[in-house]
Design a protein around this nucleic acid. Sequence first.
DNA 1: TCACAGTTTAGAATCGTTCTAAACTATTGA
DNA 2: TCAATAGTTTAGAACGATTCTAAACTGTGA
Lengths: 143, 143
Amino acid sequence: MGKAPRNGKILAAQTMERLRHAGLRPTRQRVELASLLFQDCDRHVTAESLHDEVTEAGVKVSLATVYNTLHQFTQAGLLRQVIVDAARSYFDTNTGDHQHFFLEKEGVLIDIPGEAISVAGVPNPPPGLTVERVDVVVRVKRA
Amino acid sequence: MGKAPRNGKILAAQTMERLRHAGLRPTRQRVELASLLFQDCDRHVTAESLHDEVTEAGVKVSLATVYNTLHQFTQAGLLRQVIVDAARSYFDTNTGDHQHFFLEKEGVLIDIPGEAISVAGVPNPPPGLTVERVDVVVRVKRA
DNA sequence: TCACAGTTTAGAATCGTTCTAAACTATTGA
DNA sequence: TCAATAGTTTAGAACGATTCTAAACTGTGA
């Protein structure tokens, strides 16, 4: 269980570029977190799960920094916050148009492609208000 | 600013019956809270807002009891919990099929009738999972 | 009226999250 | 290359919503 850099150099370089583009100074911590978040497929994390993950990877990042970073990434449009559970916040690496299944018991989110689902008949909001976003959460449980 | 019982007797009697029906012993506190919640139109409350309200009405109910009661009412099907805000839980006296506008800044929920809105194209959930409910939140802001 | 199961309560505890202020570091310009 | 500095990280305290605890209280049925 060493460092296993593999193509880490290239990845890190790409990640740093991406952070710079977002106006974020590419610090060690942000690069580490971004690499975990954006390397593969779409992911759903909580501050704690990401902190555990980065810690298990042998990297020391404080929980406060994980929180800061998640919010900064969200503000930069790299992440999207998903509110489905009163107990904790989820962050989604898929920032495109899509919705979610949510398995409450297990705290698991599953993407539903935006093209698949459609919401019709949303009334005009009361005067003076404009629609920012329409969120659909399909709450599921084990049969 | 007295007691203002008006038709309070009748209301209280109805409320007690309703609670009994739900399998809840009609204590002073539960009757008070139920009267506030169910007397008029549909309402959206948080534990704190309801506690403030009952307190201002000159009735002494502890915050813990408000929390307990909201959960008991929810379990009994008298209320529905609405998850739209990471910071606090809302409870809705409208337990029928409907959705919500949510004005984040002000913490305001507005009902959208269930007949108005329709969600199409929800994929089958992954094997072993069944749909419990589909929640739609239309996030709005002041124009 | 009594006994008891169910309920309420104050206050402590918990949990996720945010804040604070001191130490650290990426960047820039000399 | 190196300092100056603005931005970042961090441990730990603080916070706010919620839950827990265990002791006091109260509907209810006999």
